[in-house]
């Protein structure tokens, strides 16, 4: 049994995880996409219906990955540190945690993307899949960072939800003027383009890759700091 497999199994054994993976994508993509578009127009935004569906898949992946990332970081901190002190060291424990978390982010993204594909067609499916995965990775990092600072499940999950909501309503197409920066801005741009039948240019992909990589690195560092010895 590898450490990554153990930590992945640990997360998947929570019934709540399976509910999140199934229910949230359905709610976001099937039930909320239309509402998202109406809300954007009410705020003066210009989100088209197909773009709203694609974005909803991104938000679904983000919400699930952020929640799972938070609980991965907050609930296992003590046991992870004990394992690191036993001889594995914080880097190896963190590597296993980030690998397991990335696997869960991949599952969340696949569930969201699968729901999107089943619900509507996507002109550029691979672009959309990559952007949905980027959403999941970015919010995984948000969840892990919050989880490494806040141990209370209520306060931590509220903090993740707060970041999520701010990001949703400041995203492109949601208002007459988009906020100058949001953490998922580049992922949203690529996803909207894919949903609208447009390909994104190389610069957008590079930026998306840099942002996603930085998020993975930040989450890794958070796991290392949580597992390290204090002596």
């Amino acid at each position: 049994m590898t450490r990554t497999a153990a930590f992945t199994r640990e997360q998947l054994r929570a019934p709540f995880t399976l509910v999140l993976l199934v229910i949230v994508p359905v709610i976001f993509v099937v039930a909320s996409a239309g509402v998202l578009g109406d809300f954007a127009r009410a705020q003066g935004g210009s989100l088209a219906a197909d773009a709203a569906s694609s974005l909803a898949a991104g938000w679904a992946a983000a919400f699930v990955a952020g929640t799972l990332g938070f609980f991965a970081a907050s609930s296992s901190r003590g046991a992870d540190r004990r394992l690191a002190l036993a001889g594995l060291g914080p880097a190896r424990v963190a590597a296993s945690r980030i690998s397991a978390s990335m696997l869960l982010a991949l599952i969340a993204a696949a569930a969201a993307f699968g729901t999107l594909l089943a619900r509507t067609g996507v002109a550029h499916p691979w672009h959309a899949a990559a952007a949905v995965l980027a959403y999941a990775v970015i919010y995984l990092a948000v969840g892990v960072l919050v989880g490494s600072l806040v141990s209370s499940p209520l306060e931590g999950s509220l903090a993740v939800a707060f970041v999520f909501l701010l990001d949703v309503f400041s995203g492109p197409g949601m208002a007459a003027q988009a906020a100058p920066y949001s953490i998922s801005r580049k992922a949203a741009d690529v996803l909207i383009a894919a949903g609208s039948g447009n390909a994104s240019d190389a610069a957008d992909w590079v930026k998306l890759a840099v942002i996603s990589s930085a998020c993975v690195a930040a989450a890794f560092v958070a796991f290392v700091l949580a597992a390290r010895s204090r002596s």
Binding site: R3, A6, R9, S75, L83, A84, A86, L88
Partner: peptide
């Protein structure tokens, strides 16, 4: 870890040691 079994705990710590 609440969701891991007794055996899985032994395996993880055996590796650490």
């Amino acid at each position: 870890w609440d969701k891991l079994t007794v055996k899985e705990h032994f395996e993880l710590f055996a590796e650490a040691y």
